[in-house]
Amino acid sequence: MYRILEARFLAPDVKLLRLEAPRVAKMRQPGQFVIVRVHDQGERIPLTIADSDPETGSVTIVVQGVGKTTKMINQLDEGDALLDVVGPLGAASEVEDFGTSVVIGGGVGTAIAYPTAVAMKQAGNHVISILGARNRQLVILEEEVRATSDELFVMTDDGSGGEQGFVTTKLQQLLDDKREINHVLAIGPVPMMKAVAEVTRPAGIPTVVSLNPIMVDGTGMCGGCRVLVGGETKFACVDGPEFDAHLVDFETLVQRNRMYRDQERAGLCQLEMAHPKVGPQHHP
C-alpha cells in the first residue's frame, strides 16, 4: 500500500496527490511517470510524476478525472492509500541549456510539463511558459510555473483568464515577433500537441511532445503503448514518453487511444451508478 500524504484539488476535477513511494522518489527524473492501481480489481494507469522529495520519500502526481480510474483516485484523500505504485518509468526528459526554451502545458499537461520547466530553468535556459485551458478555472499550477519561468503567458479559449486564444496563437506570435526560440516542449491533448508541431515545423525548431498511449505494464513487456515515430515502432513506456514532435504519427495515436471507448464508457457508468457523487458536478 502506498499512503497518500496530501491531497487537494487544483481545479475542478484536477487533484494533486502526494504519495509515499520511497524507491520512486529517490530515482525519479523529470519526464518520468508511475503506473498505479487503486484497488485489487482496478486497471493499471500511467501518471506523470510532477514532483518528488527523496528526503520524505514522497512523489506528487496531478490527476485529471476523465474516466473510471482517475475519478476514483480523485475521490481519495489524505490517509487513504493506492494499492500499487511502480516507477519511475520511462526515459527522462532531455534537459540541457538550449538557450530559449518554450514550455507549453495544455490542461493537466501543465502538471506534466512543470517538472521539465523547472529542470530547463536550472540548466540555464531562458524559459518562456505558455499555459492553455478552456477557461480561467481550469488553469492549474500557474504560480508554480510562474516561479520557474522568465516569462509566462496564460491563454484561455473563452478569454476568462490571461489572453483569449490557443497556446499556438501565442507561440505563433512569438515567432512572428522574431523571438529566437531554440527548443519547444509541448504537453497536453493530442490536437494541441499536433498543432504545436505544425507551428514549429516550418521554422525547424526542435520540438518535443509527451505521448499518452494506453499502457499496461510500463516496462516494455506488452507492446500496447506502441507509437509510430518517424515510421518506426517505439514503445512509449521505455523509449518515451517524450518524442520528436515532427516525427510523431498523431493520427495513429488518436486511433489507438479510441480502441476501448465503449468499455471505458461502460466502466464510468458503473462507477457513477455505484457512487452518484462522482462526475463533473463533484467539486470541493
Binding site: 506488452c222 507492446g223 500496447g224 506502441r226 515502432t233 486511433q255 489507438r256 480502441m259
Partner: peptide, 12 residues
C-alpha cells in the same frame, strides 16, 4: 497495419 486497433502482442 500492425498499429491498428485490435492488433495485440500475445503478451498484451
Amino acid at each position: 497495419g500492425e498499429h491498428l486497433g485490435g492488433v495485440y502482442s500475445a503478451n498484451e
